Amino acid sequence: MKRILFIALIASISLTSCNSDNAFTITADQVGPLTKDTQVSELKTLFSKDSVVDQNSGLSEELNVNAIEIYEKGGEQLLSLMPTKEGSPKTIKTIQIFDARYTTEEGINLNSTFKDITDAYEVSRVETLISSIVIFVDEINAYFTIDRDELPGELKFNMDAKVSTAEIPSDAKIKYFMIGW
């Protein structure tokens, strides 16, 4: 009997947290109702009012090459989740944010600029890629991709140039917002 009450309590807390203001909050340990300990098997319950599209089946399930996508009823994509490749039970390794309602406690979301990020957090490092740069913020386990087209002159076209935080324009827009645990 105690076990049934405990399970009911956990289920009601989970459902309540999905409907609360925390449904779109991002912290170092949470993205909406997700935590680093959330199991893939719990996703349909956590997002019961949304659509969970799990493309992992057959060979792709063995290799874990496909993401699990979360869509709001009505069609807008909220998140794309990449499960861990090893271990059981499977948990979430990375989360790509698609909806600007997902916001950090400091107000950072998909509509933020590089200046917004640097005003709110300390940039841990910058990685230069061929067509973009990646800004890492270890404090919240996040990384932000900014397209090279947002960079000034020479940096936009010199694929070998290492980009520093001082060279990124304040108004550079975020292309991708990811959380990695």
Rank of each mutant, 00 (worst) to 15 (best):
Y71F: 06
A8V: 05
L129A: 14
T128S: 12
R101A: 10
D50K: 02
S112P: 13
S80N: 02
L110W: 08
K2V: 05
K115M: 06
A23S: 11
R3I: 13
P152H: 12
I146F: 08
K173F: 06
V53R: 10
K36E: 14
Q55D: 06
A172S: 14
F114Q: 04
S57A: 03
I133A: 07
D54L: 01
M178E: 11
A172G: 09
A161R: 07
Y143K: 14
I130A: 13
L15Q: 08
M82S: 07
V52K: 05
N66C: 01
F114G: 01
P83K: 01
I117D: 04
A23D: 05
S60L: 01
K162I: 15
N111L: 15
M159V: 15
E105H: 12
Q77V: 01
N56K: 01
T84M: 07
T35M: 09
A100S: 15
F24D: 08
C18Y: 11
D116Q: 08
Y102D: 00
A172E: 05
K44G: 01
S20Y: 06
K85N: 07
S20F: 08
L43F: 00
S112N: 07
G58T: 01
N141D: 15
G153S: 14
I117S: 02
T118W: 03
T35R: 06
D99E: 10
F24W: 11
F47L: 03
Q96I: 01
S20R: 09
S51H: 12
T118L: 06
